[in-house]
């Protein structure tokens, strides 16, 4: 495997994990535009735990997730009081606060960032990515997953059906934060350097686009969306200067042709029908 290929695969793995973090919240109908903030929390937690406390890699990553999850859990209560576009803005603001805190903290390296001593190989990222994808599919196939999708469609009726809608929303937001933290931890350990400027609004917008373009109706969405977004710009490198222009056109085109995302339930049903001769429900 060339260095370039290995680098692309590492980024792909991190992006896929990151996409599932946003997807799990989006599946319950909550849009999180603060992805970068939660990823930054995991990345900085890993950097500190690894450098200062000498944690082994496995433990560092576990704590990066716990830290991301814990902070998400705490802010879930005020955040989930908001809805729709207000929630999008509130999560966006959270990411800005996280970046602001890091930039102003000497302990966290301020604007110069932190060099991370430990490092991981691409293979580990891919193993974690596969695990997260499988977990996403598992979760969405359970009754909890069904309840999450029900909350997305009509939370009042879901509540009358006995679903604890608040617990589902807070749980999904917390889990999303934990997975974002995990992706941040992997990022820090792979690139060996973290700086606040990397975890900016662009990152948050892109990861939300991964999910929305991929489709929020099934667990395939974030996988397809993150792969599409990571690999297409690489494939377009031949076009050089024009690649982002072409990429932009492709995104707009996708939104017109498939406003509900690349993978929708109806599309999947048609595929299953062709393969199995019956629908997969």
């Amino acid at each position: 495997m060339t260095g370039y290929m290995s680098g692309v695969l590492a980024i792909l793995g991190i992006n896929i994990i990151f996409a599932y973090s946003i997807y799990i919240t989006a599946a319950t109908g909550q849009l999180n535009l603060g992805g970068a903030g939660f990823q930054a929390i995991g990345a900085y937690a890993s950097a500190i735990l690894s450098n200062e406390m000498g944690f082994p890699i496995g433990l560092t990553l576990i704590f990066a997730s716990i830290f991301g999850g814990l902070i998400s859990f705490l802010i879930a209560f005020p955040i989930l009081r908001t809805k729709g576009v207000y929630m999008v803005l509130a999560t966006f603001a959270i990411a800005e606060i996280v970046a602001g805190v890091i930039l102003n903290s000497d302990y966290l390296g301020g604007p110069t960032g932190i060099v991370v001593n430990d490092y991981i190989e691409t293979e580990l990222i891919l193993i974690v990515a596969v695990t997260v994808v499988l977990f996403g599919f598992y979760l969405m196939s359970t009754r909890i997953g069904l309840a999450m999708r029900a909350v997305h469609d009509d939370d009042a009726v879901a509540n009358l059906m006995g679903v604890n809608t608040r617990a589902i929303q807070i749980g999904a937001f917390t889990l999303g934060g934990a997975i974002a933290g995990l992706s941040g931890g992997l990022y820090a350990l792979y690139f060996g350097f973290v700086e606040a400027q990397y975890f900016n609004a662009n990152i948050s917008i892109f990861v939300l686009l991964f999910v929305l373009i991929g489709g929020t109706q099934t667990a395939w969405g974030p996988l397809i969306g993150a792969s599409f977004f990571t690999l297409i710009p690489e494939a377009l490198r031949i076009g050089d200067d024009w690649r982002f222009f072409i990429f932009g056109i492709i995104i707009v085109g996708m939104m017109i042709v498939r406003p509900e995302g690349i993978v929708t339930r109806d599309a999947l049903d048609r595929v299953w029908f062709k393969i199995l001769g019956k629908t997969n429900v």
Binding site: R143, L146, A147, R149, A150, H152, D153, D154, A156, V157, A158, M161, G162, V163, Q217, R265, D269, T279, V281
Partner: peptide, 22 residues
């Protein structure tokens, strides 16, 4: 419900299974 309140993105079977949740 008076105005049908089924979950539009769930299949018929999933909608019905939601009724078992409690």
């Amino acid at each position: 419900f008076q105005n049908i309140r089924l979950m539009p993105h769930l299949s018929v079977l999933e909608n019905v299974m939601l009724g078992q949740y409690s």
